[in-house]
Design a protein around this nucleic acid. Structure first.
Lengths: 123, 123
DNA sequence: TAAACATGTGAGCAATTGTTCATATGTTCA
DNA sequence: TGAACATATGAACAATTGCTCACATGTTTA
């Protein structure tokens, strides 16, 4: 989306602290890394998906179970599970007709943890 | 958005593992907590905001600096800074005409860290 | 094999989001 | 005070998103 950074020319005209800007620019990670990071957090940025992840952190569950738990359509859950799987946060295994989902990343809990710390400070 | 969880009645008809569902339901945090968590991650789920946060983790910067760094409009940056401020991730101080922004949460880095761990495993 | 069942998927739609543009607000300095 | 400057903000618009609905896929069992 964002263009490769061209010579400083924006903010209408004046760059206030060119030294700071250049110094920070040197330290910025690759564009792609920041983009991927945003994509990952985007997956966490929906309460349905958060609920699914939290549930799967408690137990392996099939699609129907999750739909019942969250009082949502099987289809809606299935769509979201696809997103979670693409993000490699969730994996599944088949057992007959039933497909069981579980977490595919031991860091999900750690990410939740950090988020909760922030939230709790805001009250 | 989501309704308060009513008696299990979804997934068309059959609940596959009612025991698991009930057990997991007991362990689920309050609806509101999960919602707030999603809201927080939503803020992290945009590459412009990720870049801003990363930059501010390196140095305090004014709006114009950030716009120059990211090669974006002052207005666009200002809008995003508002989002970040509402999420209490960023604070500012005024010095004459110039308003300096900086991180308002020492956990931002920790959250990035966790995200990066996940991303790096996917390669 | 056909019916029943569990899940996946594409199209469509309303809601949300990120940016732009024009302009408002607030500060400094001549 | 008025011009210049730094930032904030509201309206508008295109793009994205999450859900629903209808139906497809794949598995079991009678």
């Amino acid at each position: 989306m964002t263009k490769k950074s061209e010579p400083i020319e924006r903010c209408d005209s004046h760059v206030i602290h060119e030294d700071v800007v250049n110094q920070v620019r040197k330290k910025m990670p690759q564009e792609e890394v920041l983009y991927d990071l945003a994509e990952l957090f985007k997956v966490f940025g929906d309460s349905t998906r958060i609920k699914i992840l939290w549930a799967l952190d408690e137990a392996e569950m099939c699609v129907c179970d999750i739909a019942a738990l969250l009082n949502m359509t099987q289809s809606a859950i299935s769509h979201q599970l696809r997103v979670l799987k693409q993000a490699k946060l969730v994996k599944n295994r088949r057992e007959g007709k039933i497909i069981y989902y579980s977490l595919d990343d031991e860091h999900v809990q750690a990410i939740f943890e950090q988020g909760l710390i922030h939230i709790k400070e805001d009250r």
